[in-house]
Design a protein around this nucleic acid. Structure first.
Lengths: 207, 207
DNA sequence: TAGATTGTTAATCGATTAACAATC
DNA sequence: TAGATTGTTAATCGATTAACAATC
């Protein structure tokens, strides 16, 4: 049964991984899957998968496993991916290009709805079907378009000031690619995706 | 004193964050820093910083704090960033462009030494000063140039076969941007940096 | 000396995993 | 029924934090 206990970050990080594999199973027409099989494919302990899922409800059938379609639906619900979520992208450099173009291909309920850059030469240009706007228009645009998440791909030196604008606009979550820590004066979810740090920690494991 | 106990992944993930802040302090000419001050700036518990660092040695001075230059040097040593580490980039799409150009600016001991793509139209072209090579040349090039780490920025459908080539070439660590799990038949460090998963888990925290 | 801060221990907190009764 | 697999408990493992003696 669904528990009222707090869901840990580790669980939330794994759900998208489960969802991805389940979507794949949908595509290849597999109707049912066991925690055993999922664990084998995703390198996750089957007991952990069962525990993760059971904290949201009884999704499986004893002796059978999980119905793929049903589980996809449930995980989408949990991750709030069953309604469109609008995302702002700030920084139309190489990384911003990569993300906006990539995103255009994903048949997801996440949609990049606005792109901002402080370079006047870029403003007015179109990227992945969206006209790049100056930072001055960020607060108003985010609020008007009900944008809830933001992806920061500006240089480290500009990340905090961009974050301040986003906070002012009422953003609910930030994915920060800039190699710097962001301080927030109110409750907001900030995730980090810094290539340099990832590479550096990888170097530690060199023999 | 330096412990022989196993260093956890969590510690290794934090070291680059410490290093980044300490490098900043170097730049602005600060000679000494306390765990208190570091913690405040990086949103990390000061006790944790002290514990993390003390597992590698006695780097601080009681009553004083840490010498910034010395600590930078030590963390570089721990992360093996004091000798040049050559990196291969596979996938010269938008994301590959972003990373190779970004990397060109970093005065780091990590250097992208070779770039590969399976698109014949791209091979032979130059990106960030490096000529793009076909995948057929990957194994030989990686071994000859003593490349130890790799960044995968190909589509999910190609990621596993690229990883297989890298494993065959003897690569020691992989940073995978493709939205898929990679299976390895031998011991190799694989880190994931998947934008879609990061965004999806961010969505969970929407109110 | 007095104040500050480390290194480290012990306590706490949280996450993972093994095991198994329930049951399809 | 026999075999398979869930959901859940309890055990284990690991990571974080508070507290403080040591000492600069």
């Amino acid at each position: 049964m669904a528990k009222s206990e707090k869901i840990s970050e580790a669980v939330v990080r794994r759900l998208p991984i489960y969802l991805r594999y389940l979507s794949y199973l949908q595509q290849v027409g597999v109707a049912t899957v066991s925690s055993q099989q999922m664990g084998k494919n995703l390198d996750v302990n089957p007991a952990q998968i069962r525990k993760d899922l059971s904290s949201f409800g009884d999704f499986g059938k004893k002796g059978i496993g999980y119905d793929v379609n049903y589980l996809v639906e449930k995980i989408r619900q949990i991750l709030k991916l069953n309604e469109e979520i609008r995302v702002a992208l700030i920084g139309a450099g190489h990384l911003g290009h990569a993300i906006s173009n990539y995103n255009a291909h994903v048949e997801d309920y996440m949609r990049i709805a606005a792109i901002f850059d402080n370079d006047p030469a870029k403003c007015g240009k179109v990227l992945a079907g969206i006209t790049i706007q100056p930072l001055e228009e960020l607060v108003e645009t985010v609020q008007r378009q009900k944008i809830r998440l933001a992806i920061i791909t500006v240089p480290a030196s500009a990340a905090q000031s961009v974050a301040n604008l986003l906070l002012e606009a009422g953003i609910e979550g930030i994915l920060n690619f800039a190699p710097t820590t962001i301080r927030a004066d109110r409750d907001v979810r900030i995730h980090y995706a810094d290539v340099t740090s990832s590479l550096q920690s990888l170097a530690y494991y060199l023999t």
